[in-house]
Design a binder for these strands. Structure first.
Length: 623
RNA sequence: GCGCCCGUAGCUCAGCUGGAUAGAGCGACAGCCUCCGGAGCUGUAGGUCAGAGGUUCGAAUCCUCUCGGGCGCACCA
């Protein structure tokens, strides 16, 4: 149930109503329930009331049973001009609000503020960085990246809506053994082919060589196994430890792996030829990524490149070692003794040979971020598979004693599984981001064609394409954002690609319907909102409530970094509108109902558009 | 082996810090276009909330155990 409390209603149209009720409750309880601590919930449907107060918690301090308390409070609250009816239902105090004034305030607020309705200043003065997507530059973006991208964008917008200054960034993992692999395969097998010559998108092109490397490596492995007299059946029988040993042994002596490692060393030694190839191939990937981001509508304020920062972090760590915060292992490696300060395992932060690890550069990058931008908070949108690592990173930063360590937050999100299980790019069982969008766009285009059939003028092809893309993207975006951030997703192509039911297109359709009505009203000579508004039906009241509660949903989603809270609220708003639409006429209603409803629809459309915008969905005027 | 997470309708998921009769979408079934956009609306069926204990006035929610699944576990990224 949604909660109304002094903070959540602050600055909203509900605030005066809430404050009046809260003050009366404080008085009626003789201060046992201070106004500042009042928590009202939205009353369940079957009660017929709007808000409710559970009286159990008061029983102790007032030394009465909850039902009796509810009864006594009902009398006190009934006197409020904001309340139409107050009655006890067992231990609950149910309140029905005086609708008139509230409708007026809610509708006016949404119409006046338009798409910024729901914004607040809770986070003003905060400077927040959101790191998201952060791809490797050896293969194209896939479904997992899409979830990350869509989530990161929505979180960034939500946090910004609360008044914070937001910086979007990614760390591009552009070096390392995985990059060396695609370079080796390209150098040895591509015979000078390029994305241009093959007519392929750069990231897909490079990804193909990454896969090729893996194929060649497997072939090498098979030959190796054969030499050792190991067939599939024999391998099958080995226990995991033995198998890992074999894997390790193979990796060590593999020719391909050796050349990949050699290449990586050349890269680190800044061998000009290797660097040149690396730059060329990375550029192909960046060009490909740029197209995908453009398609999805994803952007960044600042890119960080692993190749720029991977050497850093040593000084910080050595300094901590000197201060006695970190410890030295027998072989010279530096470890963060996390087990002494919590229940985490110790973490090696610098190798025995003095070279850095992933966490070394992560410490470096975290520092760079806070120093470069004077951040007050740093958010990392990274999958739940990294939960443990991210805990270690944060604990390590805390150990280092940097003042901002507590402002590093891991926005963990659930994995994306296909019907056949986990995606593995090397095995080709991935849903490619570009393919996904193109496929859905084609489906949306087909739907559009079908619906265009009977009469009316046909929009130009360009426009139809634009709409098809917006519809497709709304489907993808909403599908990912509707489920809780931390929930693993079973990506079922059938339901995930649907346009009906609880989907992005449903929101689009609802918005387009409302826009259409408002357009017709303008064409019919315009209108202006009457005062007072005449909104008497329950269906209208439900819509007003949804509009009134919208800012609470935005704040809730922003504070929990979970756009699903908002996505759900928007869907329910759309449902309420569609229900109203079904049995209430708007354009040919009598005045003052007609213009009252138009005003309400304008408010609803503002919410729908604003909310979709926060989720990263472009609302269409027409479908 | 250890750690973290999860198990709610046939399927996919909500259920926010414990609170009233556990909800939605899809699927199934039955309806609704002389009417503002049917990508819509209305209704029906479908639940021992994995199981067993416990705490509480009250548990899907908190604790313990069992079963089932996922992810991760030091000098990979």
């Amino acid at each position: 149930m949604k909660n109304l409390n002094p903070d959540s209603v602050r600055g909203t149209a509900l605030e005066p109503t809430f404050r009046d009720i809260a003050e009366r409750l404080e008085q009626a309880t003789g201060g046992a329930l201070p106004a500042a601590e009042v928590q009202l919930t939205v009353a369940p449907e079957h009660t017929g009331a709007d808000l409710a107060l559970a009286c159990f918690p008061l029983a102790r301090s007032l030394r009465k049973n909850p039902a009796q308390i509810a009864g006594e409070l009902a009398d006190a609250i009934a006197a409020s001009p904001a309340v139409a009816r107050a009655e006890a239902a067992g231990p609950y105090l149910n309140l029905s609000l005086e609708r008139g004034a509230l409708c007026e305030r809610v509708v006016a607020a949404a119409r006046e503020r338009g798409s910024s309705y729901g914004d607040s200043e809770r986070e003003s003065g905060q400077r927040v960085m959101v790191e998201y997507v952060s791809p490797n530059t050896n293969k194209p973006l896939h479904l997992g990246h899409v979830r990350n991208a869509v989530l990161g964008r929505a979180v960034a917008r939500l946090v910004a809506s609360q008044g914070a200054e937001v910086l979007k960034t990614d760390i591009i993992n552009d070096r390392g053994i995985h990059i060396a692999k695609s370079m080796i395969a390209y150098r040895d097998f591509a015979a000078g082919e390029t994305p241009q010559s093959s007519g392929e998108k750069g990231d897909h092109f490079v990804g193909r060589w990454y896969v090729r490397f893996d194929q060649e490596l497997r072939a090498e492995r098979r030959r190796w196994d054969e030499q050792k007299g190991l067939d599939a059946a024999a391998l099958e029988k080995l226990d995991t430890r033995k198998r890992e040993q074999l894997d390790e042994e193979f990796q060590q002596q593999s020719e391909l792996m050796q050349s990949a490692r050699a290449l990586l060393q050349q890269w680190e030694a800044e061998d000009p030829e290797v660097r040149e190839l690396w730059r060329t191939m990375n550029q192909w990937v960046y060009d490909g990524f740029a197209q995908t981001y453009e398609l999805l509508g994803i952007d960044f304020d600042k890119h960080y490149y692993e190749s720029d920062i991977y050497r850093g972090g040593r000084e910080i760590i050595l300094d901590a070692l000197e201060r006695g915060v970190f410890e030295k292992a027998p072989n010279g490696a530096v470890i963060a003794p996390l087990s002494k300060h919590g229940n985490l395992q110790d973490k090696v932060v610098l190798r025995g040979d003095g070279t850095g690890l992933y966490i070394t550069q992560d410490i470096n990058l975290a520092t760079i971020k806070f120093e470069e931008f004077q951040l007050t908070r740093s958010l990392y949108v990274i999958g739940s598979e990294q939960d443990f690592y991210m805990k270690q990173l944060k604990a390590t930063l805390e150990l280092l004693g940097v003042p901002w360590a507590s402002e590093v937050h891991h926005l963990s999100y659930g994995m994306v599984y296909l019907p056949e299980g986990k995606m593995k790019s090397r095995e080709g069982t991935v849903v490619d981001a570009d393919d996904l969008v193109h496929e859905l766009r084609a489906m949306a285009r087909e739907e559009l064609e079908q619906r265009l059939g009977d009469g009316g003028e046909r929009p130009p092809d360009e426009e139809l394409e634009r709409r098809a893309l917006a519809i497709a993207l709304s489907a993808i975006t909403f599908n990912f954002l509707l489920v809780g951030r931390e929930t693993d997703i079973q990506f079922d192509p059938r339901s995930s690609l649907a346009f009906e039911g609880k989907t992005g297109p449903y929101l689009q359709y609802t918005g387009a319907r409302i826009a259409s009505i408002l357009r017709k009203a303008d064409e019919a000579g315009g209108w202006s909102a009457p005062s007072p508004l005449v909104l008497e039906s329950d269906a209208e009241w439900r819509l007003v409530q949804a509009v009134a509660l919208y800012p609470l949903a935005v704040a809730d989603a922003a504070q929990s970094y979970d756009p699903a809270r908002l996505a759900t609220a928007l869907f329910e708003l759309a449902q309420s509108f569609n229900a109203l639409y079904h049995d209430h006429r708007v354009l040919d209603a009598e005045e003052p109902q007609r213009s009252s409803r138009l005003a309400l629809l304008e408010a609803v459309l503002a919410v729908l558009r604003g909310g979709m915008g926060l989720l990263g969905i472009e609302a269409l005027e027409e479908m």
